[in-house]
Write a protein that binds this DNA or RNA. Structure first.
Lengths: 321, 321
DNA sequence: CACGGCTCTCGACAAAAGTCAAATTTGGAT
DNA sequence: ATCCAAATTTGACTTTTGTCGAGAGCCGTG
């Protein structure tokens, strides 16, 4: 990558402004350009991750509830967005927090697995830019040819773009019509390698889906509402990376799952840091299942959800004693 | 550390402003305080490291010269501050760069060894704040009761303060008058433990001193100008963490060194990342010695010094071939 | 070589952020 | 209970920053 003169200028301006603490007009005269240009360069510097502005997420883990949740569910870290106080839209708050937490968890050289869904895409969308060139973002599951902008490959690419990282998409459909075809495709070297590579990730980012007619799987046409209802009868409790899980967080033994092209749950569990973000209160049961299945080590949720989880943990504790 | 309501407010303000991108007046109305207070809180947030603003130091490593230096001297990374262009005071530029590089190299949970000198103190002084509570900053060498503000313990403490980290000073003089006393003091459990702990550091920050009458060792009275001159005759080539090294970067076999309380060079070499920062051009020979002795893996220097180093490397190469 | 289409740059204005002294609250000591 | 000192908060003011449309420079093309 040749260093463009423009990029050089952006870098110099950012350096003088942010590192040396000069004012914009001082920077301008140093570089012999107008102050307006300096302002523009600085915006670009922020947008390309040449400068990083991050706020500590301590406040949200330094919470009694968060600590109790960590203990109760054996999680590495929990962040709770206080739903009530701050903003008009509470779900944005969760996404903003999740994005910050995500950036805090990423390390240079990491390999990051990203699933898909509205939540993940929202996070990608508000995530600030960073300059992590040696990071690789890999797609955890096949694509859905949906009219939504939060397609699996979109989520992966957008996050890669934000981080200035390399994006590794994979071009297979999420669901095929026969088990044989799915099996065959999974055996394809290109696909197989990528699926195998999932276990080498250092960090995963996903949410959990609900098993109802509102699920993306239904909206995108992967499953008919009736099929979904039937799966629910069979014990479907949630959706992770396009796969149906049961209440224990194991893959449900069903035709649909056998027709899916996605990272195996075992591979996901092999990832050291599994960051799960849940926005909707309605995903309470699915989340419980995901936690039960050990699919999550780091959790970002809203205060209400946190309270419900603790309540449940309390009940379980009572029953046990 | 109990969470003060004030600290909570600072955190909230910082969150709304930096993470959500609200304006100060919006934050003010959200929190029911005046905008002026918000501005103050935000300054505090920056000063306490609740928000981190960092600029990439890529530009300074992405240099042809830097690459060639890395190759020629087998260094992990080299940063070169372009002396000419930017600012009135070029040495400030090196210090600012060094501070950024330093912050980039620190990881959570790290143990950091810090030596002393004008250079190190300058870096500490302009370093921005960070919130790294689980970091420990340890002092690499004994104290000098000098009237200077860049005493070893000052350097350590200041850097610890900036990082919100724990500072581990050690209270022994840098030089004693007899070898016996030095030996005895080194055997003291408190001192011994701390010296032994140096090898466990993940990162070291130091500069190298010149062997002349301007040296701190002379200015602070540890050595008389005449003694210094004598040591020079005996092969002294530089000063590292209060110790005299020869041209090969080994500790010089002399009475002075035996009377010093400081981390052994072997312990320093055991540290994974050894960040050396050199501001003055006059430290060319000392720097060469330090590099020869493997006392530095990461290097921050000015453009002029870089050119001289490369020139020397070229000569050496020619001689070899 | 003249022409659009393109990006980059600048000046001027509007918006936002920083600052300071005065006013208010807080906490402790008497 | 009352006072005082220290810290916090505020409104008013100044400085700094963001933005936008106009104009300048650049390049490939007809």
């Amino acid at each position: 990558m040749a260093i463009r003169p423009a990029e050089q200028l952006i870098h110099k301006a950012a350096w003088l402004y942010y590192a040396h603490g000069l004012r914009q007009d001082e920077v301008a005269s140093q570089l012999n350009i107008s102050r307006a240009s300096v302002a523009m360069y600085l915006r670009k510097a922020r947008e390309t991750g040449i400068v990083n502005i991050s706020t500590s997420t301590q406040l949200f883990t330094d919470d009694v509830m968060a600590r109790r949740l960590e203990d109760a569910f054996k999680l590495d870290a929990v962040w709770i967005a206080p739903e009530n106080a701050y903003l008009a839209d509470p779900s944005t708050d969760i996404a903003v927090l999740a994005a910050s937490v995500f950036l805090e968890l990423v390390r240079k050289g990491d390999r990051i697995g990203v699933a898909w869904g509205r939540t993940v895409y929202t996070i990608a969308d508000i995530m600030s830019y960073a300059d992590l060139q040696d990071v690789t973002v890999v797609q955890l599951c096949g694509n859905l040819g949906a009219p939504y902008s939060y397609r699996p490959d979109q989520c992966t690419m957008e996050i890669a773009r934000r981080l200035n990282a390399k994006g590794l998409n994979f071009y297979a459909p999420l669901v095929l019509s026969t088990e044989e075809l799915a099996q065959g495709l999974r055996a394809e070297p290109v696909i197989r390698d990528q699926l195998a590579g999932v276990a080498d990730c250092d960090l995963a980012l996903y949410s959990v889906g609900a098993v109802d007619a509102d699920s993306h799987l239904v909206k995108c046409g992967a499953l008919a509402p009736a099929e979904m209802a039937a799966l629910r009868e069979e014990g479907a409790a949630g959706v992770i990376a396009g796969q149906i899980i049961d209440a224990k967080g194991e893959a449900l033994d069903c035709s649909y799952n056998r027709r899916v092209i996605s990272a195996e749950l075992a591979s996901l569990r092999a990832i050291e840091k599994r960051l799960m973000v849940v926005q909707e209160d309605s995903k309470f049961e699915p989340l419980l299942s995901a936690i039960a299945g050990g699919l999550c080590t780091h959790l970002v949720i809203g205060a209400h959800m946190a309270a419900r989880l603790l309540e449940r943990a309390g009940e379980a504790g009572k029953k046990a004693s």
